[in-house]
Amino acid sequence: MQVKAQAYLEALGGPANIKDIEGCITRLRMTLIDPSKIDVRKLQAAGMVGRPMIIGKGVQVVVGTYAELIGAEINKILKQK
């Protein structure tokens, strides 16, 4: 899960680009500083399903059924920085 979290974090533009993020059950919901920094190919490689849904700075990425755990891991990594 930590490896996945790291991969998603990088694909989303790194820790500095994330204002807040949380894992629903199927998707990561987040607010980004700059959504254009999203790397769709890297997201797909990390395991994203479909395409990211972007509404303004709010972004949702469908990741499967373990989104809550991935979101928690990303928040853990963010806190360490």
Binding site: T26, R27, V49, G50, M53, V62, G64, T65
Partner: peptide, 9 residues
Amino acid sequence: DPVFSEKML
């Protein structure tokens, strides 16, 4: 909800 209706999962 497209996640479900489009059977993304």
